[in-house]
Amino acid sequence: MSPSRRALPAVALSLLSALFFTATYVLNRAAALEGGHWAWTAALRYLFVLPLLLPLMPWQGGVAPVWRAIRGAPGAWLLWSGVGFFLFYALLCYAAASGPSWLVAGTFQVTALAGMLCAPLLYDDARARIPRAGFAVAALIVAGVLLMQLGHAQGALDAGGWLALACVGASAFAYPLGNRGLLLHLEKRGIELNATQRVFGLTLASQPAWLALSLWAWTQAGPPPAAQLGLAFGVALSAGVIATILFFQATGMVRDNGTALGAVEAMQAAEVLIAALLGALFLGEAWPRGQALSGALVVVAGIALFAWVVARDAARDRREVRALRSDRGG
Rank of each mutant, 00 (worst) to 15 (best):
G161P: 11
L146A: 04
A226C: 00
H152N: 08
A143T: 13
T219E: 15
A221K: 03
A209S: 00
G161D: 06
G190I: 07
L146N: 11
L147N: 03
A164P: 04
R189E: 09
T196C: 15
L193K: 09
F135R: 07
N194D: 12
V142Q: 05
A156M: 15
R132Q: 14
P208V: 08
G160A: 14
L202F: 08
L193F: 06
A139R: 03
F233R: 11
A166I: 10
L165T: 14
L150Q: 11
A159Y: 05
I191E: 10
A136Q: 06
S214Q: 08
P225W: 05
L177K: 08
L231S: 03
F233V: 13
L204D: 01
T219I: 11
L182G: 04
Q220D: 13
Q207V: 01
G160K: 09
A139T: 08
L147I: 04
G155C: 04
F173A: 04
I191M: 11
G134D: 10
E187L: 13
P225C: 02
R132C: 15
A138Y: 10
L184S: 09
F135K: 10
P208T: 03
A174P: 00
E192T: 15
P223L: 15
L165H: 14
W210E: 12
R198Y: 06
A136S: 12
V137Y: 02
F135N: 05
A166F: 15
L186G: 01
Q220P: 02
A143G: 14
L229E: 09
W218T: 07
A143C: 12
L165E: 01
Q228S: 04
V235Q: 12
A217D: 10
Q149E: 15
G155I: 12
N179H: 13
F233G: 06
K188F: 12
L165P: 05
A227T: 13
A205F: 14
L182R: 06
